[in-house]
Amino acid sequence: MFWWRRDIRPGVTAAFTQLAAGNLAFHVGSDDDGVRSHRSALAAAVDAERVHYMEQVHGSTVVWAEEGGDAPVADALLSRGLPVAVMVADCVPILLAGQFADGSTAVGAVHAGRVGLAGGVVRAAIEALRGRGVSDIEAWIGPSICGHCYEVPASLRDEVAALVPGTASTTSWGTPALDLPAGVMAQLVDLGVPGHTEAAACTMEEARLFSHRRAPGEGRFAGIVWSRG
């Protein structure tokens, strides 16, 4: 089921699924019953009545799960401890945890693809948490395509690098590339948020993870974070 799962704080768990957990996205393929079954199995695995998902659109909109209804259009989903998830297959999944002034837990799931990262989704999510009085925020970066595999035209690399310093890269075969995880980490550092990469891996290179570039339309894995309190 899980690529990586860890108690990141007392009473708070973060995890990333892998290919064996099945496709978790309705917008990929046509087996909706299969997606429902996979989502039910994931909810059971994290001992939750339900997992909150979002309709990701490569933007920078942030929504609180308690206020957004079912599958809100957003690329950052926050909550007061409810299980929230982000689905990816090359984009960078980021899981967040922090603390409200009353001591309760805040968690978040962020979808940082090339467009969303350049559009400020990471900053938007952190600012939304801080706007609710959340402090002691940390981030866990999950598997995504790495800077040695994400080939792009030179003009696109330069355009993104101008907006997100640290993203310019070169593939292992010598062509222009983008390093989105490095860009995420650079933004977290700028925001004063500790970033953890122990769950990171390259989706293009790791066959146990979904990758849109390696196998288009095959599926999406999820990053999920929740409070057990």
Rank of each mutant, 00 (worst) to 15 (best):
Y53K: 02
A76Y: 00
V86A: 05
S60C: 12
M54L: 11
V35F: 02
V92N: 00
G29E: 09
E55C: 09
V88T: 15
R39Q: 15
G22H: 07
R50I: 04
E55S: 13
P72F: 05
W64M: 03
I94L: 13
F26W: 14
G29R: 07
A85W: 01
V57W: 12
V88E: 10
A85S: 14
V92A: 03
L96Q: 04
R80P: 00
L24N: 06
I94W: 05
P93N: 06
A76K: 02
D70K: 13
G34A: 08
G29Q: 08
A48C: 12
D75T: 02
G34C: 05
H27N: 15
V86G: 07
L24V: 03
D33I: 09
E67R: 11
G68F: 10
M87Y: 01
M54N: 00
A97N: 08
V84A: 05
V84H: 02
A85I: 03
G29F: 07
G69W: 11
L78V: 03
L95S: 05
T61I: 06
V63M: 12
D90C: 04
D75C: 01
L24E: 04
D33K: 14
H38M: 02
L82Y: 06
W64V: 00
A89E: 13
A71N: 15
H52G: 02
E55P: 00
D90T: 02
R80S: 14
R36C: 11
V63F: 08
G69L: 09
E49C: 04
R36V: 11
S60Y: 12
D31H: 07
D33F: 12
Q56I: 10
P83Q: 07
A85Y: 04
V86C: 04
V28S: 02
R50F: 10
G69K: 10
L42F: 04
Y53I: 02
W64D: 00
S37Y: 09
V35C: 02
D47C: 08
D32I: 09
L77Y: 00
S40Q: 15
A25Q: 12
L95K: 01
A74G: 04
D33Y: 08
I94N: 02
A74K: 02
R39T: 07
S40Y: 05
A76D: 03
L42H: 05
H52T: 03
M87S: 14
E66I: 04
D32P: 01
W64Q: 01
S79M: 00
E66W: 07
A48V: 06
P72T: 03
G34E: 05
A65L: 07
D32T: 13
